[in-house]
């Protein structure tokens, strides 16, 4: 129990720390780069061919308090966050929190489906290969998974679109209007995920099976194969869970290319648009959300590892 509390406590601290650092970073960098923030915001809001843009820029500067000293602006932001007021997007003047939550929802959906697909493939393949670590099959899957990972995700994405949506016409191309739209982007992501997962499952299982305690357990006479399997799997699953956890964390931002290609309004796209249009409040809110999510995922992984194999915790934290 103490361990659990310890993990949770550390994570909360870590989460808050990340949240503040990220938002501070977003804030600092967005303000310190060359270029007039007010003018750029005005241009994104009102369009580049709009007449009279300088006046608008001045108006933006006043409205958003952009001429106040940076420290004041940042403290102002912190104060607001403490009251759970996450600010208003500089570009379209709607509150940032719903926008970020919406993006998170879409990323979560994509991530869960992608992980689901990937596990459907990686688990069987990994287990089969892990049970026979010397066979040709192992070599082939190792090479194949390396190859899959070497080809960039967006190239896979375009190939899948061309094959399934255009030539075969089984699935829609892009967007998010009904559950079928999630299949192609999730499948693209699942390709690379399953490549790594299956490798890890295979290696980890092979290691466990070859380890002394497993042999000992069998010699002891624990005859039922499936109980052994249970022991074996528990131990083997620690690196797997770690790996999947890392994959899950990366799904929340690392899928920018896929989201751009499939027009999937997740966190990656949100970040990209906010960065290019210098929408500082959205960046800060998204940064905080990202940080908290990463920490949440890592914590879940830690707790799961604890449940599965208490001594493994020491290994993982090195």
């Amino acid at each position: 129990m103490k361990k659990v509390v310890g993990i949770l406590g550390k994570s909360i601290l870590r989460g808050l720390g990340i949240a503040f650092c990220v938002s501070g970073l977003c804030f600092a960098v967005a303000h310190l780069i060359p270029g007039d923030v007010a003018l750029e915001i005005a241009m994104t809001r009102y369009g580049e061919s709009d007449v009279g843009i300088i006046d608008r820029a001045d108006r933006v500067r006043e409205e958003e308090g952009l001429s106040l000293p940076l420290a004041v602006q940042y403290l102002d932001w912190i104060g607001k966050v403490a009251r759970l007021d996450f600010g208003i997007s500089l570009i379209d003047k709607t509150p940032t929190l719903p926008v970020v939550l919406r993006a998170l929802k879409f990323s979560a959906l994509l991530g869960v489906v992608a992980l689901g697909f990937s596990l459907c493939v990686a688990l069987p393949v990994g287990i089969v290969v892990g049970l026979r670590p010397r066979g040709k099959f192992y070599l082939v899957t190792a090479m194949l998974s390396s190859l899959i990972v070497s080809i960039p995700s967006f190239v896979w994405g375009i190939s899948l679109i061309v094959l399934f949506a255009l030539k075969l016409k089984w699935l829609p191309v892009a967007g998010f209007l009904s559950p079928t739209y999630v299949i192609l982007p999730a499948a693209t992501i699942a390709l690379t995920l399953s490549a790594t997962s299956s490798r890890i499952i295979a290696v980890s299982l092979a290691e466990t099976i070859n380890s002394p305690y497993y042999a000992f357990a069998r010699h002891k006479g624990l005859s039922e194969l499936w109980t052994l399997f249970f022991h074996g799997l528990r131990n083997a699953s620690v690196p797997v869970v770690t790996c999947i956890g890392m994959q899950a964390a990366s799904l929340f931002g690392g899928t920018i290319a896929i989201e751009t290609l499939f027009n999937w309004p997740g966190v990656g796209l949100l970040f990209l648009n906010a960065v290019t249009s210098r929408d500082i409040p959205v960046l800060q809110t998204a940064g905080i959300a990202m940080g908290l999510i990463c920490v949440a995922v890592n914590t879940t992984v830690d707790l799961l590892c604890l449940v599965l194999k208490p001594t493994a915790r020491l290994e993982r934290l090195g």
């Binding site: 870590r14 990340i18 960098v29 964390a249 920018i256 990656g268 970040f271 960046l283 940080g291 990463c294």
Partner: peptide, 20 residues
């Protein structure tokens, strides 16, 4: 290091590259 490893690298690179 714990802290840094918890943060997605691609996003940070996007952030820095996109702003600079």
């Amino acid at each position: 290091t714990d802290f840094i490893m918890a943060f997605p690298g691609l996003l940070f690179a996007l952030f820095v590259g996109g702003l600079f």
